[in-house]
Design a protein around this nucleic acid. Structure first.
Lengths: 221, 221, 221, 221
DNA sequence: AATGAATGAGACTTCATTCAT
DNA sequence: TATGAATGAAGTCTCATTCAT
């Protein structure tokens, strides 16, 4: 009987697009495990099952590779969120779904986006890319809050909540979420769903009050 | 008999404590400007006006040096906050003062704690020190919130707000504050005091509701 | 019977000779612009509008490619000079025409022969090709000078001017011309024709004396 | 009997100035042997009996190291020439001594200056340093020729030989000498003294005629 | 015939860290 | 005490060159 000696497809000479994804997968993995600096291009290349020069040829510099990885993960997250946030739902429902998707995503990719994002914040060279990502998020969140305002605007003086306030609130919300995402990443046992609920509580109860025109003021100037 | 021929005053022989502070000053400056990795011991030594081996003799490894710097700055910030938060003030007043002090400190030492802290979060090796610092912060904030709870605990089931909740809330609060601090840095025209007020609004109104036992729940499980 | 279904004209299937010239054009251009080492086969291939393996298939190694390019340019220059130097003209007229042609060629092909030649001189591996080229040049120049000698040889002991002297003189002449070519390049206002005249002055007046048997000797041995 | 186990001075921790010279010696040697590109910093360091980082610490980049080596050798050559060219000698004597010193130096350091110089000419990045070196030489030579003119200016219209002519002649002379130096470097058997005489013949006889007001002109424009 | 895909080898450069004075 | 001198170890990046389609 003739043994089928080897029909194992020698996985070589793949089309560019495929290889790029493999590389990004490896990059995300290694950057997360080691951190930007400790990660070596050697390890990334090896992990991708490819030689180093290919990495440079396709994705460029270590810095560019990191940005590409960060970008892909960020986009995936945004898409995951966008997919669940319907356009015509009530604001609190939108916020809740968004938060749940966010924490779910972070929890599911504990060594993906969250870690890369944290790395990026530590290095000035990624400030540009970060700012861009953040502005995309802020835009979404501020939009969400804006629609919430309008929904209540019947009995609230709309002028009380100007655009800048929305932006600031969005910043605070995003910051809080990032921080909780960190916490989540650091606590493998923790439940993303519950974390989302906690965040929602802080965010929505506060926001609801604010949007209702109720504000806090320092007593003594 | 041997005469001590020369007791010429050895020029710059400062006491150890002073030298260490100089080194830490330099370390904070350089680590902030360059980031942990890009910072070189050479630059730090030069900036401190001292030779490299001295730095090693006094503060040890680069890693240890970073930790020492982080520690000192963190302590300073904590003290700045603790100094304004009286023990016997009403909770909202405490929170307000704390936030104001925090934003003031971060704004005034833009190249101090905040930057180091961010660096530290990106590198796993600082996890230990970070955890310690964090627990100190969380302790303060959670304590603040805790006392607020007690103040209202007459009609609220205390079990609703467990320790972990406090920790999470503290996290969210700190994250939001950091985020707004960033926003502040990006908007030079903005008023720190006003930003603190905005933060207080989000935090307190939300917290007040929560502490009052009012919670938000998902409608569909 | 199988019909040859498709004889669709394969688009860019140029004859080998043409392709080779295109490659050499690109090689000359890139080698001149970047220098031998800094030039990359990638750039050359791209500039020739062809893929890298083709370059290797047609002209071989980078080293061989450089030699081929150098060779072609050198030949072109030699032909340009030979074309204007008639066989039956008086020696000074020959020299003058030769110099004018040389400066004209170098000036017109500033990114051609001169640059390649200089590159070649710097690398030991091109010594062989260089020697060959040089001997061709020297042959022409020395031949010119030699005929001049014969023209005057009635009253001069021919043994005074041996072959080696001619070679050395030719060297000096070529070197001086190269140097003036550089000077010309650095002084855009200068007139090539005038520069050629200056060179001719130095060369011919000196040569004339020498050829007339007039030589300079050190006073003290 | 007690053997002197080892009093061999461990040649370590030398003062900076000494080490720098050792490194430059090694650099000159290796750059000459291999050429700029083929030379590796590893080999240079090893040849200098020192570790690579020291080379970088003291002399900087490979490029800078090359320039430093070229500069030192060039300066040495200039000094060797200046040492023999007296200020008050007749011009032809000055020129002769200068040329003799020049070719003597080149001949004696066949893998020193000449090779480095040749390398430098091939790479655009050294154009700056080269230009500087050349201008120093041109200045000296042009000065020499200028004094020669003055010495004869009694019966020659001084206006015939303007400054620019001197510069051009100097260029031609220097170029011719460089070229002969190359020839010398390539012919180990050749005698520097004789080469100098040859150069002097071409240069002086031509120059003498020119300076005497005798010029060559094209017959047909 | 022609090319996209792939790689092995090696270069420069930079630091944290420690002797030996 | 204080420091100039020294190094081992890595890391990024670039190319010439060749398969396999």
């Amino acid at each position: 009987m003739l043994a089928r000696v080897s029909t194992a497809p020698t996985f070589k000479r793949l089309p560019r697009a495929v290889r790029e994804q493999q590389m990004l997968d490896a990059a995300v993995k290694v950057f997360s495990r080691r951190g930007f600096h400790a990660a070596s291009m050697d390890e990334i290349a090896e992990d991708a099952g490819i030689s180093k020069p290919m990495v440079y040829a396709y994705l460029g510099t270590k810095e560019e590779l990191f940005i590409a990885a960060l970008h892909r993960e960020g986009t995936r997250m945004m898409e995951a969120i966008a997919a669940v946030v319907g356009d015509n739902l009530p604001p609190d429902e939108q916020l809740w779904r968004g938060l749940r998707a966010f924490f779910g995503f972070v929890g599911a990719h504990r060594d993906g986006w969250a870690v890369l994002y944290r790395q990026a914040r530590a290095e000035q060279r990624f400030a540009g890319e970060l700012a861009e990502m953040r502005s995309r998020i802020i835009e979404v969140v501020a939009g969400m809050l804006g629609r919430a305002v309008e929904a209540r605007s019947a009995h609230v003086d709309r002028r009380e909540v100007r655009e800048i306030d929305l932006e600031v609130m969005a910043y605070a919300l995003v910051g809080a979420s990032e921080s909780l995402a960190d916490w989540l990443a650091d606590h493998p046992q923790a439940d993303p769903e519950k974390t989302a609920t906690r965040m929602m509580n802080v965010a929505w109860l506060g926001a609801a009050q604010l949007l209702a025109g109720d504000t806090w003021h320092p007593t003594d100037p």
